[in-house]
Write a protein that binds this DNA or RNA. Structure first.
Lengths: 147, 147
DNA sequence: CTCCGACCGTTATATCACATAATGATTGGT
DNA sequence: ACCAATCATTATGTGATATAACGGTCGGAG
C-alpha cells in the first residue's frame, strides 16, 4: 500500500541508506546463521584470517567496534576452534589472534555465501552500479565529518 | 592506523553501507537531539505532518516499524503536543493521527536541520553523486528479495 | 441477525547491538 | 623509580527491534 506516503523522509539519503541496509542485513543474517556467525563475527574472523597476529585493540580499531564488546565475540570464535589467542613475546598485555585451519576454511566458505548474498540483494544493480555505490559509500565514511 | 586491514570485508557493499550509515546516524542523532527527537520519531512526525489522519497501522507500514513499538513513540509526540490521536467516525478501532501547529513547526525546523546535516555528511559527494546514491539505494530496498 | 475472521491498538517481554565506566596487569619513556 | 599510556576484561546501561498475546471493533458471509 506504500503509495509514496514516505515521500517526506525518502528525500533523505540517510533514510534510503537505512531502508536498504535493513533489507541487506536481514538477508545477510540468514546467510551467516548457517555458519553460526553474525555479521560482526564474520567480519572479525575475516580480518583475523587476513591479518594473523592482529591484536584485539587493532581489530577493534579496524572494525570500529568497542574493544569491550570484542571479548565475548573472540571467545565465541575461540570456543569453536576458529581462532586462538596466543601470547605475544615481550608484551604480556596483548594477545595475537591467530586463525586456525577451521577458521580459514569457514571464512572462505562464508565469504562465498556472502558474495552470493550480495549478488542476490543487489541484483537490481549492474556491476558498474555496484562499483559506483561502493565508491560513493567509501567516500562518505572515509572522510571524517568536520565539526 | 587503518592501513586497509579491512580489505577483506570492505569488498562488500553491505559493509560499506554499514560503515557509512554509522557515520550518518551519529551526526543525525546529534542534530535531532536538539529538537528532542530521534530519527524514528522525526520520520514518524514528518509522515504525520504530510499525511494528516494516517492511522498507526498505516504509519507502521510506511516506515517499516512494528506497530507495537509505535505506541510509545506516538505517546511521546502526543505528550509534547506535536500530534493528537483523534477518533475516526465510524471506526472505533483506529485513531487518526493529526499534527498540531507545534508539530508542523517543529517538523519544518527539524527538516531544515536534517537537510544541513545531509549537506555536511555527504559533502564529499556532488549533487549528481548524491542523486545517483539515492537512486541506487532505492532500487535496492524497493525491489523485494526473491527467495 | 448472528457469527467469525480480520483489523486496530495496546501491553508485556525478550534479544541484540552498541555504548560507557572502571579495573588490574603490563609496558615504555622520562 | 615513577607515571602515563596501553591492553584486555568485567560490569552495566540504553535503545532498537522483534514476537506473542489480548481486548475491542468492524465487515462479510450465511
Amino acid at each position: 500500500m506504500n503509495d509514496n506516503l514516505d515521500a517526506g523522509v525518502s528525500q533523505f539519503i540517510g533514510y534510503n541508506m537505512k531502508r536498504a541496509l535493513t533489507v541487506v542485513q536481514a538477508d545477510l543474517a540468514q546467510v551467516l546463521a548457517e555458519f553460526g556467525l553474525r555479521a560482526v563475527s564474520y567480519s572479525a574472523l575475516l580480518v583475523i584470517v587476513r591479518t594473523p597476529g592482529i591484536s584485539q585493540s587493532d581489530l577493534a580499531d579496524v572494525l570500529r567496534i568497542e574493544k569491550s564488546n570484542l571479548v565475548q565475540l573472540i571467545d565465541e570464535l575461540a570456543n569453536r576452534g576458529l581462532v586462538t589467542r596466543e601470547p605475544v613475546p615481550g608484551d604480556r598485555r596483548r594477545h595475537a589472534l591467530i586463525p586456525a585451519k577451521a577458521g580459514i576454511a569457514l571464512a572462505e566458505a562464508a565469504t562465498r555465501a556472502v558474495q552470493a548474498h550480495e549478488d542476490r540483494v543487489f541484483a537490481a544493480l549492474s556491476m558498474l552500479e555496484r562499483a559506483t555505490l561502493v565508491h560513493l559509500l567509501r567516500r562518505v565514511w572515509a572522510m571524517p565529518v568536520r565539526a
